[in-house]
Amino acid sequence: MRLKIKNLIINFGLLLIIIETLTPIYFMIKYSISDRDSIITGGDVIPLWPYHPTFMVYKYLLSSPKFIDVFLNSVKVAGFTLLFALMLGVPMAYGLSKIKSVYRDFLLVFLMSIRVFPDIVSVIPITEFFIKLNLDNTILGVSLAHTLLALPYVIFILLADFEKVPPEIELQAYNLGASKTTTFLKIIMPMVIPSIIVSSIYIFILSWDEFIFSYFILGYGEIETLPVYLNKMLSFQPPQNILMGVAVLLSLPVFVFVLLIQKRLLINIKEGALKE
């Protein structure tokens, strides 16, 4: 009996979570395929599903050179951020996992400090610094800013995994004749692949929908990323269906990325390395 009630509560909770997740998605999709009559009803109740569903908005957006340009900018920024954050974060986490003194905790707090302040506070000095380096209004600049934001997370996720790799594994590789580089690339790195995948998802999502830093660094220049573009559109008060179309296209890559990669997360690669 008690178990039944417990199950009921859990199921109810799950239902709430599902509703909470799906409602915005429903609205986004519904509006993006709505025809004009389903939005401007002249006082009638807005229907739960459009009278005449249409993909007009997508056709319009995907044939708009401006939108394609902005979309590709976002892809480039996310790609570069992924590259930089992993190239820097993986070795950093590995290095930190080898430090066995109190300085390590100090370093970790220091690394985290970018996330201690609200973005709106840290964005100002960083933007100023980037302007001095002529990195403002460039894709490289935005990518580097996103890397800065992503690094603490990458390091924390990977650090925990590197520490789980038994030191003997590494010593064994040296013992069998492997150099430090070979050991890292062939033995240690493959053992933390699940964490690298988790970090990648995180970095991608972070960069893809990051707004504040992108907005400040790109300023009023020519280059825009999707969130910056969406913000600019809002000020023109465009029709809801176009706005929601952009929103769907903004969310889509994240869905696809997570779907593609989530299966690999289930592989527990470290199983059975050592005797029980």
Binding site: P166, E168, L171, N175, M191, I269, E271, L274
Partner: peptide
Amino acid sequence: DVTMVFQNYALFPH
């Protein structure tokens, strides 16, 4: 040119 077998075997899991 000296090889070692560790107590926990340290096999490469992947």
